[in-house]
Write a protein that binds this DNA or RNA. Structure first.
Lengths: 335, 335
DNA sequence: AGGCTCCGGTTATGCGATTAAGCTAGGTTA
DNA sequence: TAACCTAGCTTAATCGCATAACCGGAGCCT
């Protein structure tokens, strides 16, 4: 019952059938410049290759050539906002044009040396990875394998200066923009939530810091509170506010958390924005689904194309680049 | 200025330093069973490997072994809902436990033979891919390279019977469940929207069909309309309804589209659900952010673990499996 | 003394591809 | 007629690794 497993065709197979050497086949299929092979042979080789369904073996090729066309994008959370999605897409296309293959690896949740070993085993040209996953030892290991490292995410700058490129997200700026807006509207008694969970908490803390730094000098205060991504948690937060006295304005970390808060506020009979203003962040479609429509801080890409181009430069020319290609901008709506 | 590029350490480097042959190194590092190498040599080799930051070259290894540990998950859109995300994560972990590496390739938007060639070049053990990207010729090419094919998505069954495994999504069932619910509540004049765009339109059409088949026999009618994923488009749809007469109930394709419709309905002063009921699908968090809370049809995973297990079976044992592991279930809320 | 076993390795080969360096037959030129 | 081209290939080495097969010496048995 064990059917014979098909073996992918190799240049050797083609060579045999065409009655030439593998070298010739290789020259033909790669259109090697300067090789003197007549058109008749070329067509014969090519048609046989076609007939056999030949597909070059990428890793055999890169093993021989000693260079890799692989770029690894390490990211475990598949869902990550429209901005990142667009960026990822652009990057993929442009890398492909440069002869690279961008593969996303969402495998392990691990970090440091262990993670670096996994990535290095694939011998990519570069690894694009959230900076939280990097440790000095991990970076060292990657560099020993001549793999470019590009750190992304919140405060990617933190790992700067070790031969690592960075792609920074100005989360402090996001908070600041929210703060400036609320201050301008005359609010002084502010509140903010910070999400629980490893990665999110970091981002949240930075956004909170931006908010505080923006409103502090004007004498405004910010109460902050942890929150989970659930309606129950939102309700609890709102209950605390009702107990302590409703803040004049709330910065809800991002649109999704703000959406939960808005629901909870409405349940509690709080009029938004009359009694309490609300600002989200990311400016996702949700903002325009809710009534009242949610005011938000969006990260405006300065130029996704240009950014992708810089990343490419880091990969191909093996230079170090430091980017922070999103400008936080307030989008004012009803809340 | 051209600094010398570091060369990743190889077993040859280790062998030289340790004063043994590469074979010994290989045996040691792979803990080859049955080889008789004393502990003293083992520790020496291992510590040198460590010192050099040695990481095995995955593709050299698989080239030699003649087998690939790569499974390719071809998926363009990074954002694909929480269900798909969870599934992807499970799959990754379980495949890893079996010694496979799941990589996501979102490269090209292309399909058919050209796409198949790209995938085949990486010599994966299996390719998991939306069935829309597969053509008979493409499948043929993959099979020639001994690559397992697993088709996913809407009506993946369409490509059944060619040695291809399928992972089907019961979108007809989603529509049906919505229909049954609305019928049960006594509505007879229904409306539905179908998203524009290649992939979404297919899903939408299937959900619509399910709805129609469920309510048709009872004499209910379904008006359907195209819609874009934008507030403007939602407003236009609502305007049409106001002109033609408000439907008693609406099936909004999914939660996101329903959210937009809800906003537009509220803007038009329509009371939901009193004047018009609304049912979404996917049961995302958004449902619990909106007020009124959105009723939705969720695809309940029968067992993500079991499903992942079956996929693994297809990959490892090279068998053909056909799965449809999500059951559509109505989640009743306010609308 | 000769044969056997076991230890601690080594040698050799090949996976699929690339590529520098040959090599041969036929034609051209001095 | 000999020397020299050139077209059209082929040979062989190599990338990093795995693995079957082998090998020399020490110790033991008969």
């Amino acid at each position: 019952m064990t059917s014979i497993r098909p073996r992918p065709a190799t240049i050797t197979d083609i060579a045999k059938r065409a009655g030439v050497s593998t070298a010739t086949v290789s020259y033909v299929l790669n259109d090697a410049p300067g090789s003197r092979i007549p058109e008749s042979t070329r067509t014969r080789v090519r048609s046989i290759a076609d007939e056999l369904g030949y597909v070059p073996h990428a890793s055999a090729r890169s093993l021989r050539k000693g260079s890799s066309d692989l770029v690894l994008y390490v990211q475990m959370d598949v869902v990550h906002g429209p901005l990142a999605a667009e960026f990822h897409h652009q990057l993929t296309l442009r890398l492909r044009d440069m002869g690279y293959t961008l593969l996303q690896y969402g495998g392990e949740r691990h970090r440091g040396v262990k993670a670096a070993r996994t990535w290095a085993a694939m011998r990519p040209s570069a690894v694009i990875v959230e900076h939280e996953r990097l440790t000095p030892a991990g970076i060292e290991l990657l560099r020993k394998s001549d793999i470019q490292v590009i750190a992304t995410g919140v405060a990617a700058e933190a790992v700067k200066g070790e031969g690592v490129s960075t792609l920074n997200m100005d989360d402090v700026g996001v908070g600041a923009r929210a703060g400036e807006h609320l201050l301008g509207r005359g609010y002084r008694d502010l509140a903010a939530v910070v999400p629980r969970g490893n990665v999110l908490r970091r981002i949240g803390t930075l956004r909170l810091r931006g908010l505080q730094e923006a409103v502090g000098p004007a004498g405004a205060t910010v109460r902050s509170q942890d929150m989970d991504w659930s309606p129950e948690s939102a309700a609890e937060v709102v209950r605390t506010w009702l107990d302590e006295g409703l803040p004049e304005a709330v910065f809800g970390y991002n649109d999704e958390f703000s959406g939960l808060l808005l629901g909870a506020l409405q349940d509690a009979g709080v009029r938004v924005p009359d009694q309490t203003a609300l600002v989200g962040a990311d400016d996702v479609m949700l903002c325009r689904m809710l009534r009242p429509r949610l005011t938000s801080v969006r990260l405006e890409p300065q130029s996704i194309e240009a950014t992708a181009g810089e990343i490419i430069r880091a990969v191909t020319e093996r230079t170090e680049v430091h980017l922070s290609p999103w400008t936080p901008v307030l989008v004012r709506r009803d809340t």
